[in-house]
């Protein structure tokens, strides 16, 4: 049942091309475009500030593109379309007369996870390409002194951290969509909450008290920095948040998802 629902969600997403582009395709293009502009401006106008390129550090950094609130806007819009679309188009009565509620909602979550994973990986690839362009312009590159296994693991950790962070946001969007039955409410509430969290967590950026790991942005950063350390990065103040951060992200995701699913299974769809 859940695979049938997942197939449907991915099919709908593939056919809703314009929305899917803005939600999941725009950020990688933006990362590529803005990176190239930055490189050409730096090299042609300012001169080489940093006399070497680091394409693999760039690709690792690219995995964090969707971790900040403003850049999560696209993913939030994508989540709102997936979770709030059925309310907006009043299509629950077409879908829930064919499949069960929980598999349908979980399939939406899975479809979002797949789409956002592609987006995160493409962001990383875009930054890697920018790094290569930087290398060709600078004429010099630095590569991590660690082995390929550590590089791959660092990337995997960073990818997982960003994915987990965005999935917490998606589960929150799902909850707001179920509560409000409105796509716009899900976007606005999620974005404002993320911005508020980022502002509130500024003091936690220096690390220290692990209670800051409850903030999803710091939790994600902590996990990513533990990966960056594997590639020789030294400026990793938050890497101590990695473990409690992972726990916090799982907790937030589980809490939002469970509440949303419980409410959804009990919800009267008298209009939709």
């Amino acid at each position: 049942m859940i695979l049938d629902a997942l197939k449907t969600e991915l099919y709908k997403l593939s056919r809703n091309r314009w929305s899917a582009f803005w939600a999941f395709g725009f950020m990688p293009l933006f990362a590529l475009g803005s990176g190239l502009v930055e490189q050409f401006f730096t090299h042609l106008y300012l001169g080489d500030i940093i006399p070497y390129a680091a394409p693999l550090q760039d690709s690792l950094g690219g995995l964090a593109t969707l971790s900040t609130s403003i850049f999560q806007l696209c993913a939030i819009a994508g989540a709102a379309i997936i979770f709030g679309g059925e309310y907006r188009w009043e299509t629950w009565r077409a879908t829930l007369t064919r499949n069960d509620r929980i598999p349908v909602m979980l399939a939406k979550l899975m479809a979002f996870a797949i789409a956002v994973s592609v987006s995160v990986i493409l962001c990383s690839l875009a930054r890697f390409i920018v790094g290569l362009v930087d290398m060709s312009l600078t004429g010099e590159a630095r590569w991590p002194s660690v082995g390929a296994g550590d590089i791959a693991l660092a990337h995997l950790i960073a990818f997982t951290a960003t994915l987990a962070q965005v999935m917490v946001t998606a589960s929150f969007v799902m909850l707001v969509a179920v509560l409000s039955r409105a796509m716009t409410a899900a976007i606005v509430a999620a974005l404002l909450t993320l911005v508020a969290i980022e502002i509130a967590s500024i003091r936690g950026n220096g690390g220290g008290d692990p209670v800051w790991a409850l903030f999803p942005n710091l939790a994600g950063a902590g996990i990513r920095q533990s990966g960056e350390r594997m590639m020789g990065e030294v400026d990793t103040l938050l890497h101590g948040f990695a473990l409690p951060g992972a726990g916090a992200l799982i907790l937030w995701f589980a809490a939002f998802t469970t509440v949303a699913l419980v409410l959804f299974t009990r919800q009267d769809l008298s209009k939709e």
Binding site: D4, A5, K7, T8, Y11, K12, R15, N16, W18, S19, G85, W89, E90, T91, W92, R93, A94, T95, T97, R98, N99, V104, E272
Partner: peptide
């Protein structure tokens, strides 16, 4: 049930395909 509830961005053929997957 009541007024037709359909995805506006799908064609008729795609609508049936999406709902067929779901079933």
């Amino acid at each position: 049930i009541e007024a037709p509830s359909l995805y506006p961005f799908l064609t008729a053929r795609e609508t049936l395909r999406a709902l067929a997957h779901l079933s």
